[in-house]
Design a protein around this nucleic acid. Sequence first.
DNA 1: TTTATGGGCGCC
DNA 2: AGGGCGCCCATAAA
Length: 579
Amino acid sequence: MSVQHASIIRVDHGGLDVGAVGEGVPMTRVQLSRLPGERVLITGGGVEDQLDLAALPAYVRAREDDPAVAPRWVWDDTARWYPPLLAAGVRVARCHDLRLCRRVLRRAPAVDGRLLDGDESAHWDRLGPAAAPAHPTLFAADETSEHLRADLEDARQLAAVAASTEATRLGLLLAAESAGALAAAEMTYAGVPWRTELHERLLTDLLGPRPLRDALPPVLDELVAEVRRTFGAPGLNPESRTDLLDALGRAGVDVPDIRASTLRQVDHPAIEPLLRYKKLAHLFQTNGWTWLDEWVSGDRFRPSYQPAGSSTGRWSSNGGGALSFPVQVRSAAVADEGWVLVVADVAQLEPRVLAGMSRDSALARAAQGADLYQGMVADGAVATRQDAKLGLLGAMYGATSGESGRMVAGLTRRYPAAFALVDEAARAGERGQVVRTLLGRGSPSLGGSWDEEPDGPPSDLQALDRRRRAYGRFTRNFVVQGTGAEWALCWIADLRNRLWRLGGTGAIDRRPHLVLFLHDEVVVHAPAALADDVAAELEQAAAGAGRLVFRDFAVDFPLSISVVSSYGDAGKDKRKAGT
DNA sequence: TTTATGGGCGCC
DNA sequence: AGGGCGCCCATAAA
């Protein structure tokens, strides 16, 4: 009896819905369209009305507060509508993001694209993401994107899904994609609790005091001088590859590039200060005082997320660098007084996803337990954990040579279904065909000059072949990375509802809430007394995501969970899942 | 002056 | 001849 399962799935116009608050409640869809003059057209759900934009929060709140009538809000772009609602203290349970869902449907191989055509459909195809709330564009939004009829587009999308042979999976994908957009807006709204003074102390310890204007901090200044002295090159710019290659050449050193890993092989007294410069300069430029000024305010780091910003369906971050802020500065992310950060990550997400989507029972068996690679060793498939990792990653990335490539051959016999799936995806890509994730997201097509006449010189044929193979490696990885992103979306979609139900009153950031999502890792900011409850919800949501995506094929998704005050301490105090 | 591209590095 | 991103810089082109 899967109670959690039932509570997060419900039938909604033929699709699956992630995020219902109860069972057996009739679902309504309410479409919002913007009208000229700061007015909103509201259709569906038994109402048709015009409203002042300013009155919208009260209108929405009245329906969200009553689970019996809590509808699915259908709007052109979550990033346009939700931030002002959040600012007004309104939390939305579920939505349908027409822009994101249209992009999915447009590329989905199982969808008849003609069903998406109709009034204004060209406008919908051209829609880009709304500007991040923290950095609104100076120019007015494109008028063509302002006053579109949400109800017409909604009807088209519902019809396209219903007519598809993959209606159930696509419905789940669209619901998860939309829930992810809600989560993204909520995370930007709440922000990561950030201790500016800790961050500044870290910078000062490593770089010296903050420099004026465009000057370098003292430590970098001294390192530049040291590099120049040691090279005997007074005007050398350590950021310039030609300057560095020239200086190294004069010293009798010939290197193909100036990557840190290459320079480490070189024996020259300037290398050590140069590598130290590169590391500290990166910190100064990317996460230094300027970054603090721009992205941290009111003790919160508020990055901007772009759901499905990557073609595989992974999110990207187009402001603040949320998905790549270095380990070095994470110690400045500190929970509020009396609160904690609950940090959870999935070990070996993509290999587990591969086991599930290929229904490879041998790999799924190895995935039982906390360490999939160790499970492969226990299985007798490989000698060491490192071999297991090399072989599996090599299979997913398309390694053809080296140690990784050699491991792939041996593992193919032990895990035939899993390896056949990625190989088939690679061959399809090499033939120029699109591939799809388990829930039906389609890969971008090779497009362009793929079909051009091969009448060029031999070098063009070779270039074409390289391109063909590169696309094969892309499609090989796409199916796994993309399905992994779908699992993760289901995880956070369910999690945000669980956290909301966990209790507390008032705005979203007064309750346990998500503050960070990094592909296979989440950070929840929660009152310390609720830490154990949050950990339990994290695990139930992970188990639920596995059932949603892989149905009856069981795959373990064990979490590593840390309850910490500072994000920098996460992982040092890992607790075994379930305790 | 702005814009586009590629190297290099950070994250997954 | 190993997938996906963003961001910073230098450099070249416009």
